[in-house]
Each structure stands twice: as structure tokens, then as C-alpha cells.
Design a protein around this nucleic acid. Structure first.
Lengths: 234, 234
DNA sequence: CAGGACACGTGAGGC
DNA sequence: TGCCTCACGTGTCCT
């Protein structure tokens, strides 16, 4: 409960009873109540040196507390100010709206930068396909990762794009790593609301046939062997 | 100042002076101070029906205020809870640390998903190069956007990768939009700490020569005309 | 004026 | 015990 007894103590202390130099910040006008107002039944010891130090310590603790609380508030508010500065909003947006915006923004950004942790980064020697449905959901759409590792060839990307287009998959992010003539392609794609689940299997099949088309064909026409990470997911 | 007069009012009201049914939440024990305690010089009117309604209204206002403040707190805290749930942190992290994490996270995510607002999305008819240094800084590295719009050809991407590699540019994000045989390539790249500024100009020159290499060569070997956005920046 | 938003000081409770 | 965090009710300013 907020309305404890300390105000009362102070109120009485102001009027000559057990008042031992309370520090500033009291805005009661001094001595507004006649001292005839008895207070012997309040838990304040009227005299005794032990109580003096006890009260002094209590007072010091209260002051400490007050200042610590102020520091805490300032810490929180400074972070809020920082958020205000890095978000698209002016400096006068109130705390609640600011935090609402932050929540929204973090969600948006999180969706865009899905972590790619459970798939290998560099191309492997063997051909591989992986279509992993993710737990990330964006306004009802299913978002999942598709990974393709195979011999690199120049029109692999156009083929891939065709597949994605025909399946109405929206590519949120595409990472390509080529190494020694081989390529690993990791796509983060969002499926249509209507046919989220089917798309996953369709994509898997399409990638399989893409892999078949690649194998047995002539070596990549690229002139150089590359070793470069196009996008390094963090 | 926080310690205003209302506690004093209540304190006196409790003791028979101008006390007209104060609502709950007062934890002062009733009648602890003898009514001999004079209070004629306090700004409380002792009697009069007009004052009854005036005090009632004041009391109602105070209650309203209290409840509104509670709602405000709940609003803020619910947003904080939501943030706790979508960030990698447990439910017991304190407000300040939580907000610190939020700031850090937003910065990270923001850097990864730089907006591509000031460059066109779809390929244009004319060849174009743009290297725009951004105000985004990541641990001292300069981050900037490079945009290239030209006739599409199958080994454009490998060439691009070579350029980036030779300039020690780390590609944070690459957006490719092909339309009617033409391609627009927008790269978000981070330069080395050491030669941030030079890289911008080197890249610009490299892209120019890439463009020259493309023009006059045979038409793209791609079999299909594509119209697909690889990565749709938000 | 009513109402909202904020900072404040304080009590409670957790280590 | 002492320190820290939080919720609370309140005063104050703004609109």
C-alpha cells in the first residue's frame, strides 16, 4: 500500500515530536499545527540516543532509496529515448505508443531477417535439397527455408526464379554461396495464404527436378572459380 | 512536488474535520488523533452543503485519476511483456535491461534490413549505376548501397561477385529484380574499416566497366523472360 | 474544466 | 541486513 505511515510520521515530526533534522524536500509549511496535539501513542520514540542513530539510519536509507529509484527511472527513460531516436517517430510520442511501435517494428524486422542456422553455409560435395518449414508466421502466411546445393551453372538462378514464380512464392531473402564450382542456395520464402502447405511439397519436387536437369549436363561455363559469400546471415 | 497537501487533508478528514465518507484505501486507523487538534487554518471548509459536492467531486476526480494511471501503467507493462516474449530473454529480466536489449536488437536488425527506398525497384530501360553511401554505420564500417541496372546476362552475377570479392566488400543483402530481359541489382555492402571511402569509388568504376562489358554483347541466353522480385525489401 | 502523460517518493518483496 | 525492482497514488503540467 502506498499510503503508509511515513507521511504521518513526518507530519508529527514537523510539529516537534521526534524531529531530528529531516532532509529537504518536505513542503509542509513548518509548525502549522499546535503542539498541543498529543502523539504519545505513535510508534515514534520521543527520546533516547539509540533512537537518534536508528532514525538517522532510517532517514539515510530512505534518501538512498529515493536517489536509487531516481537513477532507475533515468536508466529506463534513457533507453526509451534511444528507442525514440532510432525509430520512425518524433520525440514527443508517449511511452505506451512508443513501445507499441517498438513491438511492431521488432516483429517486422525479425520476420525479414530469419536466421539461417540449421542449414550448412558452404556448398557440400554431394547434391542436397532441403525444404524446412519454419515456425515463423507472417500474417497467416507460412514462411520456410529452401536449401539447394548442386553444381553451379549459369542459368540455375533463372530456373530457380521461374520455379518460385510459378508457385507464387515470395522470396524474402536469398543467400548464395559458391565455392569451387559448386553452389549452395538458401532461400527464405513466404507461401500464399491459400496454399501454404502444398507449396512446400511442390517446391521440394521442383527442386528435385531442377537437380536432375543439372546433373549430367556439361560443366559450368563460368570462367572463374569463385569463393564468395553473397549474403552472410548473422 | 510529490508530498503535497492531500495526505494532510485526509489525515485531518479522518479525525472528524470535513470528513464526508472518504472511499476505501486509507489505512490510517480511525480516530487516532484527538479532535482537540485545531485545524481552522487549513484550507478545508468545515461545513456547508456546497462543499460536500465540491469534495465529492474532488474525490471522484482523484479516484478517476488513480484508475487512469493504473490503466496507463498496465498499458506500458503489457507492451514490455510482449517485448519480453519476442526477444531472447526470460520473463524475469528487469525493465531497464529489457529495454537495453531491445535497443541493441533493433539496431542489429535495422542494419541487416536496410531500407531500399531511394532507388527504383524495377529495372528501367536505360542502363544505370548508383553507389550511394549510407548514413548507416556498423562498428566503424561504412555501409552503402550499390545499384546496377542493365541488360540481363547469365554471368552478370559471377562478375559482380568477383568485383565485390576483389574490393573486400561484404554483401549484407542483395536484391535482384529481372523484368523483360533486363535486371536491376541492388546491393547493400559493407566496406572494410581500412579503406571505406576508397571502396565506394572503386566499386563505382568497377560497375561502370561491368556495364561496358555488357553493352554490345549478344542478347541474354536465358530461355524465358522473367518478371520476378527476388527479394522484396519492406 | 476534464483528461492524459509524466516524475516523484514511498512501501513491499526478492535476493 | 542492504540493495534492487516494481507497483502504487499523487502533484503537476499540458492540451
Amino acid at each position: 500500500m502506498q499510503t503508509g505511515n511515513s507521511e504521518l510520521y513526518r507530519f508529527l515530526a514537523q510539529n516537534g515530536v521526534g524531529y531530528y533534522g529531516f532532509p529537504g524536500n518536505i513542503d509542509f509549511p513548518p509548525a502549522t499545527v499546535p503542539s498541543s496535539c498529543s502523539s504519545s501513542f505513535y510508534p515514534l520514540e520521543v527520546s533516547g540516543t539509540t533512537d537518534t542513530t536508528a532514525q538517522d539510519r532510517a532517514l539515510a536509507a530512505l534518501k538512498n532509496h529515493k536517489e536509487a529509484e531516481k537513477r532507475r527511472r533515468e536508466r529506463i527513460n534513457s533507453h526509451l529515448d534511444k528507442l525514440r531516436s532510432i525509430l520512425p517517430c518524433n520525440s514527443k510520442t508517449d511511452k505506451a505508443s512508443l513501445l507499441a511501435k517498438v513491438v511492431q517494428r521488432v516483429k517486422e524486422l525479425k520476420q525479414q531477417t530469419l536466421e539461417i542456422t540449421d542449414v550448412e553455409t558452404f556448398p557440400s560435395e554431394s547434391d542436397e535439397i532441403a525444404v524446412l518449414s519454419s515456425d515463423h508466421l507472417s500474417d497467416g502466411r507460412l514462411i520456410f527455408k529452401a536449401s539447394l546445393c548442386c553444381e553451379d551453372r549459369s542459368d540455375l538462378l533463372p530456373d530457380l526464379i521461374d520455379i518460385l514464380k510459378s508457385l507464387h512464392l515470395k522470396t524474402l531473402r536469398a543467400d548464395m554461396v559458391t565455392l569451387g564450382g559448386r553452389i549452395r542456395n538458401v532461400l527464405i520464402v513466404a507461401a500464399d495464404k491459400d496454399h501454404s502447405v502444398e507449396s512446400v511439397h511442390f517446391l521440394q519436387n521442383a527442386l528435385k527436378s531442377l537437380l536432375k536437369r543439372s546433373s549430367g549436363s556439361e560443366r559450368s561455363k563460368r570462367r572463374r572459380v569463385l569463393d564468395h559469400k553473397i549474403i552472410i546471415p548473422q
